[in-house]
Design a protein around this nucleic acid. Structure first.
Lengths: 330, 330
DNA sequence: CCCCTAACTGCATCCGTATGCAACATTGGC
DNA sequence: GCCAATGTTGCATACGGATGCAGTTAGGGG
């Protein structure tokens, strides 16, 4: 596509019969120009279709106005929600979003390396950083990074976390209160912090009722993993009657498999709870009890963190909210 | 966050005892430097943690390496899928993604205005452009724009379209073949082209069986709109026994409402088909017959278009694929 | 009517990198 | 031992815009 260079401030200045600085000042917020000059400049700019080149502006100002957002696979609605939240929030604040889709925290490292070349003002990530060497690598770029649920933080890597432990315990208490006595937990793929905290909280919650047994299966954060886990848990003998899944997608897969493959009803035979409060969790086939982390608040805290002067807290905790629905109403 | 400016090529040059141009050539693909100099430069660069500033590079080269992607609300999984496709494809091609979340095509106009200030090399959008003045506004920026399903195209605004008309007709034929005789169509909010083509194709398909009656309701592209439309269609008397919805989310809402609010079964009482083939459409409660537009091919064609020299086709058509599932198996 | 001040303008320079051009060194051929 | 060809290097400048500083102008007060 043969692109001719767009008009520069010099071209506008020439047409308007003023200096290039006058053009620059006209388009710089807070720039001092007389109304007459401003009018001439704006007229010339509009006939030429001039728009200031924001990249070269960032050369002098040192701020690009670009914030990078790194998210995991968008086929998980939670990641899509998080991205939507971050992106619209940033747009409202007049910042641009550079998107990176990333597999895991190691990919985050190389992504940030690349992004630092684009002088991004900050990086927001819905992934967590739990490996010390990844955190150190990220630190090298001198870019403020805000992640979700990281266990490793430092001057440049901060985190906004939901109180997953608390939420896990609350789910345990709720399930017990609804009459469940044989418990199961369906985990995610890797040992992420969110995952570990939810499970630990759940088990501690159970322990308070003197329950130490809790079956466990490994999913993949997706619908298919929930279904596969149910197959593993219920294949022989009686499975759990209270099931906590690390996220909604997993829980929905679990419910579907319980019904279709084992003829078990939810909530009559098995109580199921999830996490994330994605749109689908509220639909009639599921009516899933779940946990809403409050992405709006997470985003707001993240925005505050990247503006924070040095010395801000390395970790901010947000209180998630239990969403009770029919999937756990016995 | 007090950020100290990152090291520049001059700093590296000084440390390595060479000229700034030598540093530049070392980091420019195809740059001519002797192995000895390159080694010195790389050593100095690594001790300083130097990364070339890609923004100032784009100042001289005229290409930023940034492609903008504009998508509608990400709570619709289809948009999330499209974004995922575009983003991973662009990343693989070494381009960066600037994301804009946008309400409608008018918002697209102002978004592109802003983006052109960032010298994006191209704009990909999962929205369609149907208003002539929007298309003309977009043209002013001299940025190649590839949209989905636009009815207005020109030198700068091209489009990759799925053959929605054909797909709509195929759905009609399929529903008729499965025994449906009273038909209904649930539309989207606005008069987008995709929407109109799907409906027109559906009606034409019905016409081939001599059917000219087709009830109609207006949804909102979301689950809630499908449910509301079903309420409108089935409130009085017998509703349709063959229902085509402009997208999967709407269809899933329709199915849920049919079952929960009217006690109607799908597919036994009503055949329901959707469009998009989002993940959830395959889950047991729905097993939705739908249309897969083949986002991979769409993305590939879009990439080809933005590289095309002048004179490429303004519109590329992609053949969608019918996905038959239990929701239409009588 | 004059002087001082405030408002504005343009000049020059800088931001970090790319690149045409001339200068330079090295090597080989004769 | 001289010249030319080849391969490197640095100098200078350009990209588009922001800004300190000095100079200009207009306006107000005495």
């Amino acid at each position: 596509m043969s692109r001719t260079r767009p008009p520069s401030s010099i071209a506008v200045a020439r047409l308007a019969g003023v200096s290039q600085s006058a053009v620059s000042r006209t388009f710089t917020p807070g720039g001092i120009v007389s109304p007459a000059t401003r009018a001439k400049v704006l007229a010339a700019a509009s006939t030429l279709g001039y728009r200031p080149n924001l990249l070269s502006r960032s050369l002098t100002t040192g701020r690009s106005g670009i914030v990078a957002v790194a998210v995991g696979g968008l086929s998980n609605p939670f990641h899509a929600m998080a991205l939507d939240c971050f992106a619209t929030g940033l747009q409202r604040r007049g910042q641009q979003v550079m998107l990176v889709v990333v597999e895991d925290e190691w990919a985050l490292g190389s992504a940030v390396e690349l992004l630092s070349g684009y002088q991004v003002d900050a990086v927001l990530s819905s992934l967590s950083v739990n490996a010390r060497d990844v955190a150190e690598a990220l630190t090298r770029f001198g870019v403020p990074i805000v992640t979700m649920n990281s266990s490793v933080t430092n001057r440049w890597v901060r985190t906004v976390a939901a109180d997953d432990h608390e939420a896990g315990a609350a789910i345990a208490k709720h399930l017990y209160g609804q009459g469940a006595r044989r418990f199961g937990y369906i985990a995610g793929r890797s040992g992420t912090l969110a995952q570990e905290r939810r499970e630990a909280g759940f088990r501690q919650g159970l322990a308070e009722f003197g329950i130490t047994d809790c079956e466990r299966a490994q999913g993949n954060h997706l619908h298919s993993g929930g279904a596969a886990s149910v197959r593993a848990l219920y294949a022989s003998g009686t499975g759990p009657d209270g099931l906590f899944c690390l996220n909604d997608l997993t829980a929905m897969g679990a419910i579907d498999a319980l019904r279709v493959e084992f003829g078990l009803r939810c909530p009559e035979d098995v109580l199921v709870a999830g996490y994330d409060n994605i749109d689908g969790s509220a639909w009639p086939p599921y009516r899933l009890t779940t946990v809403d982390v409050g992405l709006d608040r997470v985003a707001a805290e993240a925005f505050a963190l990247i503006e924070e002067e040095d010395g801000g807290p390395p970790e901010v905790l947000v209180q998630p909210r239990l969403v009770l629905r029919a999937s756990t109403r016995s």
